[in-house]
Simulated scan of single mutants.
Amino acid sequence: MKIREEMTRLVGEYETSGQTQKCFSESRGIGFHKFNYWYRKLQREAAHPGGFHKIECQGARPSGDCRAELVYPNGVVLRIDRPEPELLSRLIRMY
């Protein structure tokens, strides 16, 4: 079985076990930090399937200029004139 499949199965078992991550990982012979890494990784992926965030273009301007607005889950809003794709990518990954 591949590591991802194994860890997905174990995270599912953990969630129904009622144990702490430390007790669960020790009982399965897995290092706590390794298990915690996979738990967080799978939780993030479940929250954002495919790893993509939706970006919508609203009200195209006649001049061709573009503006972007990023709204982070913590409420921070970034408004950017003429955003470059690379800049947007880095800003999205910052959160």
Rank of each mutant, 00 (worst) to 15 (best):
G75S: 11
S89H: 07
I3V: 15
P85R: 04
C23M: 14
I30H: 06
G51F: 02
Y14C: 04
P49R: 02
R93C: 04
M7Q: 02
R90K: 11
R93D: 06
V76Q: 12
G29R: 07
E45K: 04
R4C: 01
D81W: 12
Q19N: 09
G18I: 01
N36A: 14
I30L: 09
A47E: 14
S89A: 11
D65K: 14
A47M: 12
C57N: 06
E69K: 15
G31D: 14
E86S: 13
A60Y: 13
E56A: 03
H48I: 11
P83F: 10
E15T: 10
R44L: 06
I55W: 00
R93H: 02
K22A: 13
G64N: 06
Y39M: 02
E84G: 15
S63A: 09
G64R: 06
K2Q: 12
R61P: 00
Q19E: 13
P62V: 05
Q21A: 05
Q58D: 09
I80M: 10
P49C: 03
K41S: 01
N36W: 09
R9E: 12
P73A: 09
N74S: 13
F32V: 14
G51E: 01
D65C: 13
N74C: 13
F24R: 06
T20A: 01
P83Q: 08
C57M: 10
P62R: 11
Q58R: 13
G31L: 09
E86I: 08
I55S: 05
E69W: 00
R82M: 15
Y72M: 07
M7H: 01
I55C: 10
E13V: 09
K2R: 13
